[in-house]
């Protein structure tokens, strides 16, 4: 049986750990709310853009941008992998990477080679250990990511697509279902998956300045960037939610552990007292 003093120090150390996990849980909760707001704020931009793009695509059938082109046979596929920078968020990153790994295995079976762009240090660390062709990466986006930080990484992928080095681009990230559930998803980015083609009631067209082509090019790049940005922001919300849940579990576990140790401590203390009394009694009897 451990000494009462040892148990007491152990309890104190677990209590301080519990304080930390509790604090992390609360920080994650407040950050999650802000991340969700950002998620909602980024939607109107992408929606508006999609409207304009689908209109342009229908209005100018003679110009086909390569991002909208029909699928070409796939030999190499690019993945933009969105992960968190920090750990302690449960199985968020490992679930995503496991899902990706399954997909890659299936692709390799068909003779398709994957290449990667990573966002966040967890994904990069993974590919460093696992081995993989990483074309570009960004890390340390912080809690408030900016589109500016993503432009470079996305452009590397888009350039590779236009140079026919890769034949499709996917984004792997976590989808925010609710606070308790985050689901890893892999979405196709390029070629653009067409929305529903509703018939145009009246034929009308924009006045383009300077030309339909330049406008469409600029729009498409920005649209894809905004989709990646959305994935990053959503993943951020997932990260905070997952961390909140993980830290809550850790706090609860620490509480259970303290209760158990408290029992052990009481027993040890009781044993020590009993022993002392019996020593005194036997000492008195000997006199």
């Amino acid at each position: 049986m451990a000494g009462a003093k040892e148990v007491r120090t152990k309890i104190a150390s677990i209590k301080s750990t519990q304080k930390i996990t509790k604090a992390m849980q609360m920080v994650a909760a407040s950050k999650m709310r802000r991340a969700q707001d950002r998620m909602a704020a980024s939607r109107p931009y992408a929606e508006k853009m999609l409207q304009v793009i689908s209109h342009l695509a229908r209005a100018t059938p003679e110009y086909h941008h390569s991002f909208m082109a029909v699928e070409r046979p796939r030999k190499r596929i690019g993945y933009i992998v969105v992960s968190s920078d920090r750990g302690l968020c449960g199985g968020l990153n490992s679930n995503l990477l496991r899902r990706l790994l399954h997909e890659i295995k299936a692709l390799r079976g068909e003779g398709i080679e994957p290449v990667f762009c990573t966002i966040g240090s967890k994904a990069l660390g993974f590919f460093r250990r696992f081995g993989g062709n990483v074309l570009a990466q960004t890390t340390q986006l912080g809690d408030n990511p900016h589109v500016e930080d993503l432009i470079g990484t996305v452009k590397v992928m888009l350039d590779a697509f236009e140079n026919q080095q890769i034949d499709a681009i996917y984004v792997a990230s976590n989808e925010f279902v609710n606070t308790m559930t985050q689901r890893p998803v892999i979405r196709q980015l390029v070629p653009l998956v067409g929305g529903e083609q509703e018939a145009m009631p009246l034929h009308w067209d924009y006045i383009y300045e300077p030309s339909a082509k330049t406008v469409l090019d600029a729009l498409l790049t920005r649209y894809i960037e905004s989709l990646v940005y959305q994935a990053v922001v959503e993943n951020g919300a997932c990260e905070q939610a997952a961390r909140m849940v993980a830290m809550k579990a850790a706090t609860d576990n620490a509480g259970n552990l303290i209760d158990e140790l408290q029992l052990v401590y009481n027993k040890a203390r009781q044993a020590a007292i009993t022993q002392e009394i019996s020593e005194i009694v036997s000492g008195a009897a000997a006199v």
Partner: peptide, 27 residues
């Protein structure tokens, strides 16, 4: 549809080079 960053072809190019370099360094 406002940009949040100043965009120009060579600036984008520089950002792309930077992202590539980071990956190479990291690996």
């Amino acid at each position: 549809l406002a940009d949040t960053a100043i965009r120009a072809h060579d600036l984008d190019e520089a950002a792309a080079m930077e992202a590539k370099r980071r990956a190479e360094d990291a690996l």
